[in-house]
Design a protein around this nucleic acid. Structure first.
Lengths: 233, 233
DNA sequence: AACTTCATTCCGGATAATGGAACGCTCTGG
DNA sequence: CCAGAGCGTTCCATTATCCGGAATGAAGTT
């Protein structure tokens, strides 16, 4: 697959700017990316013309509002993310913990959206971040229902058990102290994503655990029903 | 300011993909952008390598998850948007109408974030979209407090009146039937943005109008206080 | 099996990206 | 008050690489 070196460099600049957090000077960025200042400056000038990057009062560069428009556009055009958003917020408000949507895109599992809980101690996943397949509840549901979407040959016994039960639980396998409960969004015979509830392990004991399972499965089913009814593909 | 033609074309492709809504084939995109298919294909190959675009099962292109990460990253890194988000949601939930955040970026007014109301008839601004300066409440507040940020020489009398009052109202000047109430976020002696409440004109009569003003000014003040306290610039 | 339509690859030529060096500017400290 | 360091920005000869019409191969469609 033939590529364009110029575009590659421009995207690397955007990602470096994001990882840096806040703003970065041209010289800093050039050093981090090992690019000549002149080259980088030309790329940033084009990105700035479309507002994908901006410069503050005295020259430093940061990500621009054009990216917000494109990013929210991508989210809004995604059928699953669109119908899941209100359900995530509803669940987060009702239960007080963080709910998020995970789906397979380009062979990887990513967080498509989230609605954070209300507690002082709460899970805060990064939207857009990748999630591992092997050690997560969402990953196992994908292994069982659609292994080809995450580049896996077949499902493990544990994954098949989770699929039969209709949800899966992950207690500290992925991140120590974090419990995640995930339920599949199954519509028109295929898996469109997973709704997951994440919280500190202590917050999901006993009754709270059962309630979390209920809220998660309920939200996943609502999203599935909305997808069925939605005429748009 | 010297630019890179290659990067310009790549960004134009992204924006065309967003405006098209949903997905587009290579041939469609090439026709819309008047680019040779081979050229466009090379650009998209690079964008796809970074997940800024994706291809569905049979070749069609759409915006990718990498853009969601970059876009929400840009929003999360913006100090004003970050502290305003919970206040927007709180106000929208409490009052039931749409609240949004407007700020000047690169000499233009743009919607940085929003929280939609609950009614069936509700305002739904596009995050990232530009807002005119002359015919909006937020625009007048900018004219009065920081005309240089929106490329204007001086403030009109109407703008100065709005600034003295501490908020401004727009009834149908911008969009027929739409009433917007805006209040400035003033911190450390300068204007960082405007919190605005938007609804159908009929929904903001009498008591509701006064309540909307109260909620809007309250939210703006909370954001301002959060900005003062926040040590990060 | 002929035809259309699609994404993708090829390759010689010309364009436009490259990057080291120089510029103008604002600080900083002697 | 000026030398120096740092910044973003511009210059320009070189050449890497982007360009794009044409060719390819794989699906569908008639």
């Amino acid at each position: 697959m033939e590529r364009s070196g110029t575009v590659d460099k421009a995207v690397r600049a955007l990602e470096a700017l994001r990882e840096g957090g806040g703003s970065a000077s041209l010289a800093e960025l050039a050093a981090r990316l090992r690019m000549p200042k002149a080259t980088l400056h030309r790329l940033l000038a084009s990105l700035a013309a479309h507002a994908l990057v901006e410069q503050d009062g005295e020259g430093r560069y940061r990500l621009g509002v054009g990216l917000i428009r494109l990013g929210l556009g991508a989210q809004g055009l995604d059928p699953v993310a669109r119908v899941a958003k209100p359900e995530l917020e509803r669940a987060a408000r009702a239960f007080g913990e963080t709910f998020f949507l995970v789906a397979a895109r380009a062979g990887r599992l990513v967080v498509l959206d989230k609605a954070e809980g209300t507690g002082l101690l709460r899970a805060a996943p990064t939207v857009g971040a990748e999630v591992p397949v092997d050690v997560t509840a969402s990953g196992r549901l994908y292994l069982a229902h659609a292994p080809e979407l995450v580049g896996a040959p077949c499902a493990s016994p544990a994954a098949q058990r989770a699929a039969r039960r209709g949800y899966d639980v992950n207690e500290g396998e992925w991140i120590d102290g974090l419990t995640v409960i995930a339920a599949p969004v199954l519509a028109r015979g295929s898996l469109h994503g997973c709704i997951a509830c994440a919280a500190a392990a202590q917050s999901l004991r006993g009754d709270r655990h059962d309630a979390a399972v209920r809220h998660t499965r309920d939200a996943a089913e609502r999203v599935a029903r909305a997808l069925q009814g939605d005429s748009r593909r």
